[in-house]
Structures are given as structure tokens and as C-alpha cells.
Design a protein around this nucleic acid. Structure first.
Lengths: 122, 122
DNA sequence: TCGGTTTACTTTACGCTACAAGGTAAGTGG
DNA sequence: CCACTTACCTTGTAGCGTAAAGTAAACCGA
């Protein structure tokens, strides 16, 4: 039960923002809640997004106008900052999803056509 | 007919090495040849890999032992440096392809489950 | 010998983002 | 005031893709 190996950072670049924004379509959420929700969505790959990645990411997206935020008290401890998708954010998300589809399609056609090509060294 | 918009850099990270190594399964190739071959493979997305991206990439992979190279004269001009996959490289490529499949699968399940979801609130 | 041409490879500086590690902040209850 | 809980923030580092410009090695004709 060692779990799956960690995914290479580089492979996640430019994907995490899409992942987070997509999650926010379900409704506003805050830092810890987002991490938790991603853990549920991704199952075995929980922890794919790190805390020190998420917060700067949220700030970037907010700076660009894709997210808006407000504070709200929690049950205990420091109040939470909830983020929600803006209209601009939804539009941006749409283009990111389309881009993902294009790239994924491209690579499926090129990379995955011969899953275990044996080496053809002859 | 402006062609497809450029793909975000970030989305390509950690993918280009896989793309190049996969191409080299077809046989040894050199810088310009690789660029050309990728252009053919990717069709409309020709130029997805830039010259100033490819050469450092080849050097990295060679430093790590995944590629080996030798020089050979071309028809005209400077001689070419051909790269080929080493055994280590083939193994590495296998893990990268598996990783790609895992990530692509994850995102297909989470991101793409509602292709054009208009906001689905309610 | 010397440019000029073709082909191919190299280098520099920069920007973005993921991360680890550690810190800070704002509540509650003793 | 202090400890505890929950949540957020910051600093520094590293990797990789890119534009722009430069270098290198072959051949050619005058």
C-alpha cells in the first residue's frame, strides 16, 4: 500500500489552476476546504496540490480577476477566506478546458498509439 | 483560418521530453529533423516545440543517460548530431507514459465530465 | 584565399509556477 | 496571559519553456 508515486511537478503546471477553478464551479470554498475537496475528487492522488502551491495560486487568480473572495467565520479558529469564480473566471476556465482537451487529444493520438512498443531493435 | 491559438507554455512542461523520446522510438534523429517530425505528428500544432526549447532538452536527457548521440554529415552544411534512445531512456519513457496516462485519466474524470457545463447552478 | 550561403547547433537572460519549510494571524477556553 | 486550534502567508529554491542573438562547420564560386 505504498500508494502511487508522486506525480512530477512539471506535469502539473498550468493544470492546477484549471483544477481549482473547476472545483469552484461547485460553489465558493476556502483554502483548506479546497485541498480537502481535491483530495476527494482525486482519490488516491490526494495531496496532489500542496498548501504552499494553493495559496499563491489563489492570489494569482484573484489578482487577475478570475476569483473574488470574502471572509467568513468558521466553527473554531481563524476565519476563512472563501473564493468564488467571477464571470471572467468562468470564461477563462472555459478556454483552459478547451486547451486541455486539445492537448490531451493531440497526445493521445501521438503518444499512446502503441502502448508497449517492444523496442524494434532487431 | 487563423489557426489554433498557441498552447500555454505551462501546459507543455514535463510533456515535451516525453514527446521527443517517444518520437525517437522510430529511430535516431537530429535537432532539425526532430522539429520537423514533431510538426508532422502534431499537424496543425506544428511549431509546438521551439528550437531554443529542444536543444537544451536534448542535452538534459543526454546528461541523464536517456539519450546517446553521435555526429554524421548531412548533404550540405554543418554535420548533424543524431540522438537515439538508450535502454535507460526506454525505461524512463515507459514510466513517463504511465504517468501521463494517470494524470490524463484523473483529469478526464474530474475536469471533463461536463464538457460544456454552462454553470449548472441549481 | 575569401566571402557568401546553407544548415545546424549554442548561449544568455528572463518569466512563470510548484514546492519545502517555517512563520504569522485570529479565534476559543483555561 | 498562555496554550490550542484552525487557517493563511512568505521566503527562497529549482526546473523548464522561450525569445533573441550568436556561433560553428561544411560547401561553393570568383
Amino acid at each position: 500500500m505504498s500508494g502511487p508515486p508522486d506525480i512530477d511537478d512539471q506535469l502539473l503546471r498550468g493544470l492546477l489552476d484549471t483544477l481549482v477553478m473547476d472545483l469552484l464551479r461547485e460553489g465558493p470554498n476556502y483554502g483548506f476546504g479546497i485541498l480537502e475537496a481535491l483530495g476527494e475528487r482525486l482519490g488516491e492522488d490526494a495531496g496532489i496540490v500542496k498548501e504552499s502551491t494553493l495559496y499563491p495560486l489563489l492570489h494569482r487568480l484573484a489578482d487577475r480577476g478570475y476569483l473574488a473572495s470574502h471572509q467568513e467565520p468558521g466553527d473554531r479558529g481563524r476565519p476563512r477566506r472563501y473564493y468564488r469564480l467571477t464571470d471572467e473566471g468562468q470564461e477563462f476556465l472555459g478556454t483552459r478546458l478547451a486547451e486541455w482537451r486539445r492537448v490531451a487529444g493531440l497526445l493521445d493520438r501521438t503518444l499512446l498509439r502503441s502502448p508497449g512498443l517492444p523496442t524494434s531493435t532487431s
